[in-house]
Design a protein around this nucleic acid. Structure first.
Length: 711
DNA sequence: TTAAGTATGCTTTTT
DNA sequence: GCATACTTAA
């Protein structure tokens, strides 16, 4: 059979074992994705299963897109009716179809992290909760865990001890869920939770999806949580045609509720499981695998396996020891420049770090070196303020219950609807049990004439948008035109504002792109609700421009499933990797170790690791210790290089720092916002000095010394 | 009421 | 070191 020719024996087994539960333990780089693609193709082309009956769950949208592309291009398969996507996107699709059975309608909003945060702030205020005692992060985390474990507010005390703390958390959880429901909104966890309960509570719905999804495949199974396990289990329990693919050594999301036992216990959860191990690696040189194996050996509780390869072209991994984080960034930049000189594409290089905060120094260093880069993660495009604002406008048009979005934009840009007007609108809506959008379309007796006019104008505006019958991108364009935001930003002197204008422009083109593609694939226009749900589930990885020739910067978590010729793993320091907040228990330490394992095994050609002896944290330089994972790695498989201490670098900096903060009348200074200026008067000393400065724009300002630098 | 100035608290990782 | 939240002044 031609389809099987390009696969090794184990992979062929994976592809042809179509019936019954199948566990594929696939090591890094063992052709996992390849097996999933071929298996899907095999089901369709050889077994004549309709794509409509197949469900494939991937870890990222990007992986889903790749699968679709390769099925279409390599196998000529029409994927239109194939269900393939992340758990979240599949669930949101199911929930939209079945919304009649839910306390939400099909136009529900999806609240992201930032939306969730604002809701929490509101609830804290409303319930008068002290955030000193109930750290918002911690509470949000607990609630997320409950949802991922399918524990509803009503069941909270069945599973949690009752005390003052948990009672308060329960109160918040309760209120939060109610608030979301009132807003016709779900957070990410709700997508899973509601789907699990939908299938669990409605046998006819469950039956429908069991019959539909006769073949189910789950990628990255080691990183599924209980809710996801339950959804899969409900659907697959009828026919048992479930294939899960994963690698327990690459489980790195337990903090998000993922339970590694899902993969370790698969053979117990299902009967007559066939297990296939893919241990041959097609990605990395032998020395990389040796290095990775020598590290991961220190973890217990794993399915025993060892990766092997016949790929011998060994460039020895380098471990570079640098003086500080700036030297580290320069080292990476120097290496990349060298690679560039050898005609190596920037696209084949990646810098991997533990925390997003580490990206900054690489950014500024790469700018200095003129190396093009793209950062994955950090602030997502769709989370920027100006983008969230326009999204809020779109949301209220499809989901008028979304008061969160409504309040965000009712007076932005400023249209004279202040606190008191807002209060009256909210009161009126509450008394009459209507949405805020309905309220502004009514006559509210408590409003003054002036207030009423402003409100009417806004109501008129939203109505005009709702009545527009134009394609999606045109609607977005019209709203932005009416608001005049782009022009306002464009004409600003503040470079940040100019970026905002560019971002909004970018938003319009991204919207058109989505529209065109959707039209092409589905032969019908996307609804606004579909568009909004799509962008809510987009990640930064999805927004990468593959055309652009650039080094990629990302966290090790984001690198999962990717591969690069040249990999730089930076910040191998105790406290960073393993992270200080993840080194209390052995369980956490093991996950940190797996994270490094994942990072190492991304490498196709050469690996560079580094750590800095000093690192700037929160402003001042801290003496660091090398990560103890370094000691664990077998020395035969890497070469350590220590840079001779060039003391003058540090010394110079100190001088510059001190002198730059010692201000005298007549000194030229630079301020982030106001630009260049001359000091006219100094009151006090150094960073605390109160300076009178004449800025180049002619403005006279009093500024504290710590806000400016001498130039 | 708004905008600038000042204080504060925070960072793990993400769909 | 930065973004956000609070305070103060116009």
């Amino acid at each position: 059979m031609q389809l099987l020719e390009n696969l090794n024996k184990e992979q062929q087994q994976v592809v042809t074992t179509t019936e019954g539960p199948l566990l594929v333990l696939a090591g890094a780089g063992s052709g996992k994705t390849r097996s999933v693609i071929y298996r899907t193709a095999y089901l369709i082309s050889e077994k004549h299963i309709s794509p409509w009956n197949i469900l494939v769950v991937t870890f990222t949208n990007k992986a889903a897109r790749e699968l679709i592309n390769r099925l279409e291009i390599n196998f000529g398969i029409n994927t239109r009716s194939l269900w393939i996507g992340t758990f979240h996107s599949i669930c949101s699709r199911i929930l939209r179809y079945e919304s009649a059975l839910l306390p939400y309608d099909s136009n529900f909003s999806i609240y992201d992290d930032a939306d969730q945060k604002t809701v929490f702030k509101k609830i804290y205020k409303e319930l008068d909760i002290d955030k000193k005692f109930f750290s918002m992060g911690a509470v949000r985390n607990i609630i997320s865990r409950q949802k991922n474990s399918l524990i509803l507010p009503d069941d909270f005390f069945k599973f949690n001890e009752k005390n003052y703390y948990t009672e308060t958390v329960h109160k918040i959880y309760n209120r939060y869920q109610k608030y979301l429901e009132e807003n016709n909104a779900m957070d990410f966890d709700d997508l899973l939770l509601n789907t699990a309960y939908l299938l669990h509570d409605h046998s006819q719905i469950l039956k429908k999806y069991q019959q539909k999804f006769r073949y189910v495949m789950i990628d990255e199974y080691q990183d599924t949580n209980y809710a996801q396990f339950k959804i899969v289990n409900l659907i697959a329990s009828a026919h048992q045609n479930l294939c899960v693919v994963g690698d327990d050594d690459q489980a790195i999301y337990s903090w998000r509720g993922a339970d590694i036992r899902n993969i370790l216990n698969f053979e117990k959860d299902y009967k007559n499981v066939k297990t296939i191990k893919l241990e041959r690696n097609y990605r990395s040189p032998k020395i990389i695998l040796n290095l990775a194996n020598s590290l991961i050996k220190y973890n217990d509780e794993r399915h025993p396996k060892e990766l092997w390869t016949s790929y011998e072209d060994d460039a020895v991994p380098i471990l570079k020891v640098l003086q500080n984080e700036r030297a580290e960034a320069s080292f990476v930049a120097d290496q990349i420049r060298q690679l560039q000189e050898n005609k190596i594409s920037l696209n084949s290089c990646v810098v991997l770090y533990r925390t997003n905060a580490q990206s900054r120094i690489f950014e500024s260093t790469f700018v200095k070196y003129g190396i093009k880069y793209q950062i994955v993660g950090g602030v997502n495009f769709y989370q920027r303020k100006e983008i969230k604002d326009i999204i809020a406008y779109l949301r209220i048009l499809v989901n008028p219950s979304d008061s969160e979005s409504f309040l965000r934009i009712i007076n932005y840009p400023s249209r004279g609807i202040g606190k008191s007007t807002m209060g009256k609108i909210i009161e009126f809506a509450f008394l009459n049990n209507i949405t805020l959008l309905e309220a502004i379309n009514s006559k509210i007796p408590t409003l003054s004439k002036w207030q009423q006019t402003n409100v009417n104008n806004f109501a008129q505006l939203t109505k005009s948008w709702q009545q527009l019958e134009v394609p999606l991108p045109k609607l977005v364009q019209k709203i932005l035109d009416d608001l005049g935001l782009i022009d306002q930003f464009k004409n600003s002197k503040d470079p940040q504002e100019i970026t905002r204008a560019e971002n909004l422009q970018e938003f319009i083109s991204a919207c058109s792109e989505f529209y065109e593609q959707f039209l092409d694939e589905n032969k019908e226009e996307p609804t606004l609700a579909e568009y909004l749900q799509n962008i809510a589930l987009q990640t930064d990885l999805d927004n990468l421009d593959p055309q652009e020739e650039s080094v990629k910067l990302m966290t090790m978590h984001n690198a999962k499933g990717l591969e690069f010729d040249y990999v730089f793993i930076v910040g191998l320091e105790e406290g960073l990797l393993p992270h200080s907040r993840s080194m209390d228990t052995n369980k956490e330490l093991q996950e940190e170790r797996r994270l490094l394992y994942v990072a190492i095994t991304r490498t196709k050609k050469q690996l560079f690791m580094s750590y800095a002896k000093n690192r700037n944290i929160f402003g001042d330089s801290i003496l660091t210790m090398p990560s103890h994972f370094i000691k664990e790695m077998d020395e035969r498989f890497y070469k350590k290089e220590v840079v001779a201490k060039s003391s003058h670098i540090n010394f110079d900096r100190k001088i510059v720092l001190e002198s730059s903060k010692h201000f005298q009348i007549g000194d030229k200074v630079f301020h982030k916002k106001f630009g260049k200026g001359i000091i006219l008067n100094v009151d006090g000393k150094d960073v605390d000095a109160k300076l009178t400065i004449s800025f180049s724009g002619g403005k006279l300002k009093k500024i504290i010394g710590s806000y400016v630098t001498r130039i």
